[in-house]
Simulated scan of single mutants.
Amino acid sequence: MNTLLSLATRNNVLLTMAEFLDIEREAIISINKKDLNAYKGDDISMLDRLKVDDAKVDEMIAAAKHLASQEDPIGVERFSFKHDNGMQVYNKTASFGTILIIYESRPDVTVEAAGIAFKSGNKILLKGGKESLKSNLKIVELWHQALQQHNAATNWVEYLQFNRTETQAFLEKPTQKVDLIVPRGGERLIAFVKKHATCPVIISGRGNNFVFVHKAADVAIAIDIIINGKSKISACNAVDKVLIDESLPNKKEFINQLISKLTAAKIKVLGDEKIAENHQLEQISSNEIWFEEFLDYKIVIGEIASNVAAIAMINKYAGGHSSVIITKNEEEAKFFMENVDTAAVYHNASTRFTDGGQLGLGGELAISTDKLHQRGPIGLQHLVTNKWYVHGNGQIR
Score class of each variant (00 low, 15 high):
residue 219 V to A: 03
residue 163 N to W: 12
residue 170 F to W: 03
residue 187 E to M: 09
residue 213 V to K: 09
residue 173 K to N: 10
residue 198 T to F: 04
residue 204 S to Y: 05
residue 147 L to H: 01
residue 140 V to L: 12
residue 201 V to T: 07
residue 170 F to T: 01
residue 184 R to G: 11
residue 201 V to A: 04
residue 193 V to P: 09
residue 125 L to Q: 03
residue 183 P to T: 12
residue 155 N to V: 01
residue 123 K to P: 00
residue 190 I to K: 10
residue 132 S to K: 03
residue 202 I to A: 03
residue 219 V to S: 08
residue 127 K to C: 02
residue 127 K to V: 00
residue 173 K to C: 01
residue 176 Q to N: 02
residue 126 L to H: 03
residue 208 N to H: 12
residue 211 V to I: 15
residue 200 P to W: 08
residue 136 N to R: 07
residue 151 N to C: 05
residue 172 E to T: 02
residue 211 V to A: 05
residue 127 K to W: 02
residue 135 S to K: 07
residue 214 H to G: 02
residue 212 F to D: 00
residue 132 S to V: 06
residue 160 L to Y: 11
residue 188 R to K: 12
residue 202 I to K: 06
residue 120 S to G: 04
residue 208 N to T: 10
residue 151 N to E: 14
residue 139 I to G: 07
residue 150 H to R: 05
residue 134 K to P: 00
residue 216 A to C: 07
residue 157 V to H: 07
residue 204 S to N: 10
residue 186 G to C: 05
residue 222 A to W: 07
residue 178 V to M: 09
residue 134 K to I: 03
residue 162 F to M: 14
residue 143 W to F: 08
residue 190 I to M: 15
residue 193 V to M: 08
residue 193 V to D: 10
residue 166 E to P: 08
residue 156 W to G: 01
residue 194 K to L: 15
residue 157 V to N: 06
residue 208 N to G: 11
residue 140 V to P: 11
residue 121 G to K: 04
residue 154 T to Q: 13
residue 214 H to R: 08
residue 120 S to A: 11
residue 180 L to V: 11
residue 219 V to G: 00
residue 190 I to R: 14
residue 122 N to H: 07
residue 123 K to H: 04
residue 198 T to Q: 13
residue 133 L to G: 00
residue 202 I to Y: 08
residue 180 L to I: 12
residue 147 L to R: 00
residue 195 K to Q: 15
residue 148 Q to S: 13
residue 127 K to L: 06
residue 189 L to Y: 04
residue 142 L to D: 07
residue 153 A to K: 07
residue 200 P to E: 09
residue 197 A to L: 06
residue 216 A to S: 14
residue 140 V to T: 11
residue 196 H to I: 05
residue 187 E to S: 13
residue 175 T to L: 06
residue 181 I to Q: 13
residue 202 I to E: 04
residue 142 L to G: 09
residue 163 N to V: 11
residue 128 G to M: 02
residue 185 G to A: 11
residue 217 A to K: 09
residue 152 A to Y: 07
residue 180 L to S: 12
residue 136 N to K: 08
residue 124 I to M: 14
residue 181 I to E: 14
residue 126 L to F: 05
residue 205 G to A: 11
residue 145 Q to M: 05
residue 128 G to V: 02
residue 195 K to A: 10
residue 156 W to Q: 08
residue 210 F to N: 07
residue 220 A to L: 09
residue 144 H to R: 11
residue 204 S to F: 06
residue 207 G to C: 10
residue 175 T to H: 09
residue 159 Y to C: 14
residue 152 A to I: 01
residue 154 T to N: 06
residue 138 K to Y: 10
residue 122 N to W: 06
residue 210 F to T: 12
residue 182 V to A: 13
residue 170 F to A: 00
residue 189 L to F: 05
residue 160 L to P: 04
residue 149 Q to V: 01
residue 173 K to D: 00
residue 218 D to T: 08
residue 144 H to E: 13
residue 176 Q to H: 00
residue 220 A to D: 15
